[in-house]
Simulated scan of single mutants.
Amino acid sequence: MVYEHGGDVYRNKVRLDFSVNTNPLGMSENVKKAIAENIEQFGIYPDAMCINLRNAIAEKEQVGIDNVLCSNGAAEMIFAVVRAVMPKKTLLLAPTFSEYERALKSVGSQICYYYLKEKNDFELQDDFIDYLDDIDMVFICNPNNPVGKIADKKTAQHIAEVCDERKIVCVFDECFMDLADGYSMKEKVPVIKAFTKTYAMAGLRLGYMIADTDFVCDVQRQLPMWNVSAAAQIGGITAINDNDYLEKGKQIIREEREFLMDKLKNLGFKVFNSDVNFILFKGNVGLDKSLLKREILIRNCGNFNGLDEGFYRITVKKHDENAEFIRELGDICG
């Protein structure tokens, strides 16, 4: 097994993990308390229909409960969506989140790529629709990982409209959108979200999809029973009602993202604009190894299709951690 993502603190000695992009506040104390107080529930089966959780999500997202489907993280939902559609030919962005490709390969889908260009700061362009001939399915990560940019709203809407006209299943992954000041495509296309990033609940594994009821039913058939644990359901209900936590996290991200981007530029790195809680930058090959010797983990993006060695991604954390990271990085750069 080859691990392709950030957060590998199990095989590395790490004191500062800048490789995973979760809310800088960490898991809410309210979530921890709710899980601890309900630990007796863990001895019985969780609600297979996730009624209370779906009700909470539906209220937050202003949709009907039958438009919400929950999963064991966004990755499980991606695989279930792909199995429900069984696309013969799919169009992906490059670079983008690698789990779309893994899911598509598992069902034998032919994969085509729309390569985002460095000269355009890896931003999605209007000519994406020129690549839609004979395509059955499209995944768009928005904001895109590892770039961090939100697609132009008119461009996104145009893509959704063209896909609808051509009967192409277009799925938007908005796992980072709630940590940014953006928009949602949930009224036009199926949208996937997760508590992983927004509420720093990566270990609990909780994702969801918003879609029309027919598509929800199609995808639900691809999911196992009891796939969302009691702990994840309790944590999710508590988290989604904690508006103060989310707003505080977003404020930290806005302020600290600017701090990190300015400092990286001052150190001579090429930094790409970001709208969310992570930053893509370009530096010397091997920088990640130099930082790991200091027990600091960053995401080497060399294994992203469309990027080379020398591209790195870091998350936005609290100021003290960000300042320490910049001090260590500056020491390495000399």
Rank of each mutant, 00 (worst) to 15 (best):
A56C: 05
R15F: 04
P46M: 02
Q41S: 12
S106I: 13
I57H: 04
L92C: 10
Q41T: 01
N30K: 14
P24E: 12
I35A: 07
V9Y: 06
N23F: 12
N67K: 10
R15M: 06
F122L: 00
V14W: 09
Y100D: 13
V68S: 13
M77C: 14
F79T: 04
A36M: 01
M27A: 02
V63Y: 10
V68Q: 12
C112K: 13
A36V: 00
Q62L: 13
S19N: 07
A58V: 15
G108R: 14
S71D: 08
E99S: 13
Q62K: 15
V107L: 14
G73Y: 11
N38C: 09
E61N: 08
A48G: 08
L93Y: 09
F18R: 00
S71R: 03
Q110A: 07
Y10P: 00
S19Y: 09
C50H: 13
A74G: 05
S28V: 04
M86H: 12
P87L: 11
R83W: 03
G64V: 02
R83L: 06
V9A: 11
L92I: 03
L91A: 02
R54K: 15
E76C: 08
P24N: 07
I44V: 12
I51L: 03
F97N: 13
E101W: 07
G26N: 02
L124F: 06
S106D: 15
I57Y: 11
K88W: 06
R83Q: 12
D66S: 15
P95G: 03
L104A: 11
G73K: 05
F42Y: 15
S98P: 14
D17R: 00
L93N: 02
N52A: 08
A74S: 09
V107A: 04
E123C: 09
A34L: 11
I78H: 06
N72Y: 15
Y45T: 06
E40V: 10
N38F: 01
